[in-house]
């Protein structure tokens, strides 16, 4: 579908269930996915650009679809930084948006993204890179469950020391946050965090989840508690924990 739209030189938004690709004359100009931090998150997490800078840029240039240009013209980011960050966000979101899925694919002609033109990429290059990334993950540690399950540090003594960038990921692994949550907290592309988590799992520094563990519904007891109240009752959760521990 993407390559056909590229050959048609189509302009608009390609909507899939895990993300959206924006095309201008057949080239990919941006991508977004709920699984990947947006360019605003990447730039604001540690960079010079704070959220008030974004608010200003969106107010001034959002309606005309030229937020990228506004950010550079007003000196909030350099042209090089915008391109680096934009390409990072584009390929990251495209990786999830183009993942195999049984969901519907739709194309809405004429739809544009507020970021505006930054650095368009050929659709073939995006498709090829997405396939390369999937193969890379499987080469590192062929356990796809690792990508979506909460990251659980290994209780065993660490056999090796994690590299500095991976240590930042490990520090946020609390058995609750998923790789996507960690990526958002660090202001890094989600795919980069998937790589780190698969490497950490291969090195035995985080647990490798069992297949199917991520898709399963919460255990009945937990589900009952969740139904009772959106605001968890700490005392009830403690009793539940004690009861569960007693049965182990």
């Amino acid at each position: 579908m993407l390559l056909r739209l590229a050959s048609e030189r189509a302009t608009g938004a390609l909507l899939r269930d895990r993300g959206t690709l924006y095309l201008v004359e057949g080239q990919v100009v941006h991508a977004e996915s709920p699984a990947a931090p947006g360019i605003d998150v990447l730039l604001a997490a540690t960079g010079r650009l704070r959220s008030d800078g974004w608010t200003e840029a969106l107010r001034e240039a959002g309606a005309t679809g030229a937020v990228g240009r506004y950010l550079v013209d007003s000196g909030l980011v350099s042209g090089g930084e915008l391109e680096i960050c934009h390409l990072g966000a584009l390929f990251d979101a495209a990786f999830f948006a183009l993942a195999p899925s049984s969901g519907p694919t739709r194309f809405r002609y004429g739809v544009a993204h507020w970021i505006g033109p930054v650095r368009p990429v050929a659709a073939e290059a995006v498709e090829r890179e997405t396939l390369r990334r999937r193969a890379l993950l499987d080469r590192l540690w062929a356990h796809p469950e690792t990508d979506t399950a909460p990251v659980v540090p290994s209780p065993r003594p660490a056999p090796v020391r994690a590299a500095p960038r991976q240590r930042a990921v490990l520090d946020l692994a609390d058995g609750v946050r998923t790789p996507a949550d960690i990526a958002r907290a660090l202001g890094r592309p989600a795919f980069h965090t998937l790589i780190d988590v698969r490497r950490l799992a291969a090195a035995g520094l985080v647990e490798t989840p069992r297949p199917g563990a991520t898709a399963s519904a919460p255990p009945p007891d937990v589900a009952r508690v969740m139904e009772m109240s959106a605001d968890p009752d700490i005392a009830l959760l403690r009793r539940l924990r004690d009861a569960l521990e007693a049965t182990l």
Binding site: L42, T46, V77, G88, G187
Partner: peptide
């Protein structure tokens, strides 16, 4: 290695 104001590996 390129140093950027945001987290990157370029």
């Amino acid at each position: 290695f390129v140093e950027t104001s945001f987290d990157s590996s370029v």
